[in-house]
Amino acid sequence: MKRWITNATIAAYLGALVVGLLSHAINYRSHVHPLMYLVVWDMYCGWSAFESRLHVLGETYDGRHYQLLPAPWGEFHPYQGPARRHYDVQVRFAPRMAELVLAHTEHDDIRRIIVVEEAWSKKYNLPDELWELRHPEPKDKYSYYHTRAVVSCDSDAVTRDGEWVSALSRYAMMDNPRLMSDVTRGHTFFAVDPSLKDALNPGVTQTGFNTPAPGSP
């Protein structure tokens, strides 16, 4: 009996590991449930060419801005490097951390929380002495600022944008007049055509790039 229980334990455990391995290998439902995090080993998710840090501001109704993070009482540095907020790559929790600060500090009424990503090329992370060996040019570190999220304190309204590198990819893609023309034509819009009022009751038809309006060439 004990041997059977042992064998069942071995089979169950190895089965879970194999499910995670195969799910990850063929990229099938590997993130379907948090439990998959325990058996999917997707280390090395890619490292971008930019180093990023997050700044979190609180904006008052009269347009002044306060620093919400780092918190006045200090921050936790989890891996001997930057503070915890900087690891919130998806900016999912930084607003929550900011709300914690707001809940425990004296401040004017805050209208919205703004999360800004500061990014710079990782080549500037090279120490000065190595930079001189590697590059004849002077080290001229430059930071880019990209608003990642704006969270209203009066409502549930949230606007988010992707990481700086995602935004750069998008801007590069948008820098193409032919493509942007297609995008403009490909957007769904509502065309009001009085002549169709009898056929289609409201006289309004949804149209777009792939669905030409009736009667159009």
Partner: peptide, 26 residues
């Protein structure tokens, strides 16, 4: 309780400038 630190306006302008292009050297 702790009080929040106001961020200077110049710094706010810098943070909110919304960069869209890289410098060529970058």
């Amino acid at each position: 309780r702790y009080a929040l630190r106001e961020v200077p306006e110049e710094r706010v302008q810098e943070l909110l400038r919304g960069d869209k292009r890289l410098r060529s050297s970058d």
